[in-house]
Amino acid sequence: MVTNQASIKRDGVQDWVSLRATAVIIALFSFYMTWFFISTPQITYEVWRELFAGLGMKVFTLAALISVMLHVRIGLWQVLTDYVKPAGLRASLQYVLNLIAFAYVAVGLFVLWGV
């Protein structure tokens, strides 16, 4: 058990908790953005840029993107293990998809950096 917890290998309980913990952050970010689009009468470039210029929103956006990366790591793994049986193909797909998920975070970080 100790070696289990200390290793980077995941287990079912960890996946279960991570999926829900990240889902809450992504949902809150989605609700906030929905509220922004509904409540802002005229979205101009200045308003749009201003939204992501604040430190709080930078942290919130990055947290949402990292949550997406962790969420799809588990979710896409669940889908792939059910539908893609050859281990080599599945591993390759997971590798590429996780790389795309990482790219989302990296793009987000550099965009937020420049705003």
Partner: peptide
């Protein structure tokens, strides 16, 4: 879930471009 993962390519691109310049 899978559809949104791929839609994010478009969403994040649109977001990155739209905040970068007028």
């Amino acid at each position: 879930g899978v559809a949104m993962f791929f839609a994010l390519i478009f969403v994040i691109w649109a977001w990155a471009v739209s905040v970068s310049s007028p």
